[in-house]
Design a protein around this nucleic acid. Sequence first.
DNA 1: TCTAAATGTCTCATTTTTGAGAAAAAAGTC
DNA 2: GACTTTTTTCTCAAAAATGAGACATTTAGA
Lengths: 184, 184
Amino acid sequence: MKNTRQKITDAAIEIFNEDLSAPLEAVAEKAEVTRRTLHRYFTDRQDLLLACQEAMQESCKKAIGDVYTSYSDPLERFENMLYAAIDCGVKFSFLHRMHNNDHHQHTTKNENCNNYDVTFNKFKSTVAELQRKELITKELSAEWIEMLCAGIVTAAINSEKSGNVAKINIKKFAWYSLSKGILV
Amino acid sequence: MKNTRQKITDAAIEIFNEDLSAPLEAVAEKAEVTRRTLHRYFTDRQDLLLACQEAMQESCKKAIGDVYTSYSDPLERFENMLYAAIDCGVKFSFLHRMHNNDHHQHTTKNENCNNYDVTFNKFKSTVAELQRKELITKELSAEWIEMLCAGIVTAAINSEKSGNVAKINIKKFAWYSLSKGILV
DNA sequence: TCTAAATGTCTCATTTTTGAGAAAAAAGTC
DNA sequence: GACTTTTTTCTCAAAAATGAGACATTTAGA
């Protein structure tokens, strides 16, 4: 059961992901509520946007965090982190984009940035571990691998949306491309 | 020497890529002209957006087309198409996104869609050729490979923007990941 | 240097978006 | 069924964005 507040933030994430300055009317429409209702939950655009950030953080933190603690084998862990990220869908890719675009200045002083770092450092440390154990190539920098992961997750999400790739294959393909693309 | 019209479309592509409904003031500012000047070249947002599409089409068509005719070896061609796409930068990724999002219904009846198809079919036919010759795996569908290419190009562009990956390495990394990720 | 074209400044009227009050309608709860 | 909570409808005023006219200023080229 999704409450109204969640319905609105979910809709907002979808809409803002495609068009950051879309009128709030569009968000309300997608959430199937009136603009008036939306404004009862969120005073303004900024407020809503912050709630979206929180929702995305929360989702990703939980999904990635669960996997992180469930697998001790780093390769298995890495694979399942990819799947978790794909399951987070737009929440993952939008969040990544928000913290890696021009205007955003990433700083440890910002609560949101810290939250982001907590989640994404789990990715990074796993990559680092794999590189240390020489399970993935050292020819690629860790930063590139991070970007690559985000790019592949985006590809997976777009594939699902477009409907041109069978849903059951998406994760398989994504892992195939990612693993071969970085393993030694 | 870039003329004003180009300066504005270039700025618009950058801005709209990040925020489709950004105020035209933001575009003017990026282009270092007044909003008044912008409006002398483009009657309204729609008009500007169409000009952006054309500019993106043109750029990609030329870049990809040149490579397509220059290399007879499909693998070499494919590699250089990737580099060309990366050089197109946002023009490539934004264009791809425009033709693969929810609202857009891709149809051969639309001039723009046709233009897009002309360019992207060169990608697709090369992939098909590589698969026929068993140079790339048949485990992955052509549609996935297309999405993957776009994802990797996006990763390359983001890497360049972030400055976290040395510029000289970006193309090397991208090709490393793409080739290993799909070759047999 | 003179002139035509391009751009900027200032201004204005419209339209769109935004945020919220008040009361009716609908949905839950006991 | 009576009561509470939530949502909608209708409304409005303020703010922001849009598109363009009139004229000053700058720029580029003969």
